[in-house]
Nucleic acid binder design. Sequence first.
DNA 1: TTGAAAGCGCTAACAG
DNA 2: CTGTTAGCGCTTTCAA
Lengths: 353, 353
Amino acid sequence: MVTIDEVARRAGVGRTTVSHALSGNRHVAPSTRDRILAVVNELGYQPNAAARSLVSRRTMTVGLIIPLDLDILAENRYTDFIVGVGDRLNDHGYRLLCLIDRNPAPLDVQRLLRSNSVDGTLLLQVRTIDTRVEALVAEGRPFVTMGRPRDTTGIVRADGDFSTSAVTAVDYLTHLGHSQIGFVATGQDRMPMFGFQWYALQGFRRAHRLHHLPLHHSRIIYHERETEPSLEAALAPIFDGTLAVTALVTTTFVGAVLIMQLLNAHGWRVPEDISVIALGDPRNTMLPLPSITVVRFSVADLAREAVDLLVGMLEGRQPSRLEHLVPIELVIRGSTAPPAQLRLITTARVQTV
Amino acid sequence: MVTIDEVARRAGVGRTTVSHALSGNRHVAPSTRDRILAVVNELGYQPNAAARSLVSRRTMTVGLIIPLDLDILAENRYTDFIVGVGDRLNDHGYRLLCLIDRNPAPLDVQRLLRSNSVDGTLLLQVRTIDTRVEALVAEGRPFVTMGRPRDTTGIVRADGDFSTSAVTAVDYLTHLGHSQIGFVATGQDRMPMFGFQWYALQGFRRAHRLHHLPLHHSRIIYHERETEPSLEAALAPIFDGTLAVTALVTTTFVGAVLIMQLLNAHGWRVPEDISVIALGDPRNTMLPLPSITVVRFSVADLAREAVDLLVGMLEGRQPSRLEHLVPIELVIRGSTAPPAQLRLITTARVQTV
DNA sequence: TTGAAAGCGCTAACAG
DNA sequence: CTGTTAGCGCTTTCAA
């Protein structure tokens, strides 16, 4: 193993000079520096990360906390987040340490921070009420969430603008003539599980108020997990005719696909019998037929923004804002259409004329 | 920040005793140990990772090298690998450092290893000829590849059994009555780009020999990227009638989906006009209609095996074998059927009888 | 059963 | 412009 002393010896200088020649923290005579760099290149010297971080108190590493909810298909899209984060961290010269956890694990978060393994932390898949966020706050170290808990006090966060997403979805559906719209999310006891679903629900409610549409709570449909059986149970009121809806807003793209398969299995045609619109980023997901109308945002942009916020904090800059919301965009595809009875009327009219 | 000396002081012992009480490397009187652990708990002490690895020369961290080929949809499924690896590393008490790279980056690999940031390395998405593997070999540190390059000399590796996958696919297709089978892979100059495609091609060739089927090289179809335009160009001979095939073996599930969309767009029905069979793990991918017949294997098992091999090496155990192949399994779904003309004959017969 | 002391490789005062 | 020196927090000889 090549050490800084070895380089210094070969270059005929003190180790301080080598250190500064590499860090640029103080001026080194060009001739000396060239000699040092030549030796560094020749030996392939690379400063020992542990020694460096022990004394500098920085690891140049960021932790990404990834919860593992194996039956939640959202994991599908972790890649976009992980790759987006890693790629952007590279630009800033930081490394990426992934903490992948099966359990909620506030304790693992504590271990990670107290061992000084990372300078800062990013949090993925934030829940409406998230114990990991609390653990992070308690440690008092810089962190940024990708997604938002319900209570955002003092939290620096980047997220898709899910509230506006839901408003946009409802706007579009009402524009098509729908007024009985269902909202589907994972959750229990009238509380969505993930933060993005909570904010989407706020938007969903707000849109109903804006349009003076009545909204019965039964149209807010919770399912425990993003699995077929769980969704099947949650959607039962629709299939047995107890709940009347002409359109569904789903909070995930994967959920939309599952729901469409279920609808299909029960003999409902999309979009003829019921419209489906998804919120989220479908970039990496296969498009089933009919293709799904979606209010999307860029996960890559979200990742990039989160990293920039965190790195800024690590370099001592105050974040200019606590919250960054990535803009959303409505992509109209084949899973939405005017509700059945309206279409009939329209057809009749056209025939009349 | 709490240090070991602080703990020692509060517990009224020397720092050596604290160190051993925590590591278990030497016997500590139970009463002393309890006292120490109480203080540790009270203060939430966690040994500094840098200090520890500086002296112990171990980081308890494994590097995962993830290439970034943004237009290759295979990235879709990185999640399975990353999560599989991270989860298994947890079991062994190791951390996961992700090196996410846009470029081939043998240099980054060098930096990672020479800075002693990781004890060992895992490699993802191995190419048929892979410069990163060479860089890794040159460093002389433990590493395991997930996937195999063509030349496996001295490399410890875990992979899906793609050769057998391809044999199985051809077996099944010939069983259905096909004899003109195409093979689709990313690549150039008659060389598949990724190792798994190279091994699949070996199996594809072997199966033809076993079945005494002639195999013209034009049936091995290369496309530059896993994108629609690229595939469209590669499949042109099929669409313009120059190349006669009744079935296609694709080396990725995503490729199969794209191909089916293209076939559809050109008016070919699957499986009526042409059968499609995919190799790989479709766990996280949406099922389009018709659902795709696939020869699959478990990425989670692959990740687990790779981690176990690597950790074994890190703990000084010689790997019992250099190569571990995850078993494959044929899942028959809706994208395969007997070739068109055969079916007609069958139908005729039935009618005659 | 325990502690003192050395030193891992590096950065950054401090002193020339 | 450059070098000497003192640690960073820990593990591990070595000695008691």
